[in-house]
Amino acid sequence: MRGSVTGTAVLLAAGALLTAAMTTATASPPVTATTQPRVGTSPSHTGASQPVLVDCLWNRTVRPGDFILACGDGNSRLTGLHWTEWSPQGATAVGTNMVNDCKPYCAAGSFHAYPVTVRLDDTEPWKKHPDVQRYSRISLTYQEGRPEGFKQVMTYPLWD
């Protein structure tokens, strides 16, 4: 019994450290109002005229290459994002949604890659910085296959 408890504790601690490392790796420095967007770079930053994408660490970016969707455990993230549009009306990218199947449980699960089209929209002032417009909604359209229980189009609110 004691070995089982110890093994579980070690596994949970390793999962927490992995989640912290994955979350920290996507952090970006704050954006300044004088920084101009650089088309085709990832991540790039923006001035006040461009809407931003706020991540789970409250950093703002423009055209990020990666983005964590499941901040609590890192079990869903967008990778390899290539942006074709970024404007106050919306942003569009193609990339991959890496999703953990959590079978038999999340720490022992496997990640699977699903090609997606990402759409950001519904800009509104960011509560933390009311002079900055941020995207408040993200939609993922699965191109071929999708995680178990997901619809072809999944829409989520974004952090404020």
Rank of each mutant, 00 (worst) to 15 (best):
S87K: 00
S87N: 00
S87E: 00
P88M: 06
P88A: 07
Q89F: 00
G90H: 08
G90L: 10
A91V: 12
T92G: 08
T92H: 15
T92M: 13
A93G: 10
A93E: 02
V94M: 14
V94L: 14
V94Q: 15
G95T: 12
G95P: 12
G95L: 11
G95R: 09
T96P: 06
T96C: 09
N97C: 12
N97Q: 15
N97T: 09
N97F: 07
M98G: 02
M98C: 03
V99Q: 07
V99F: 12
V99I: 09
V99G: 04
N100D: 00
N100W: 01
D101T: 08
D101C: 09
C102Q: 08
C102Y: 00
C102T: 08
K103E: 14
K103R: 14
K103Y: 10
K103I: 12
K103T: 14
P104N: 05
P104W: 09
P104F: 10
Y105F: 14
Y105T: 13
Y105A: 12
C106V: 03
C106I: 04
C106G: 01
C106L: 02
A107L: 14
A108Q: 13
A108E: 10
A108T: 08
G109C: 04
G109W: 04
G109E: 01
S110N: 10
S110E: 02
S110A: 10
S110Q: 10
F111R: 02
F111I: 04
F111V: 05
H112P: 07
H112A: 12
A113F: 05
Y114M: 04
Y114W: 06
Y114L: 03
Y114Q: 02
Y114I: 04
Y114P: 03
Y114E: 02
P115S: 05
V116R: 03
V116E: 01
V116N: 01
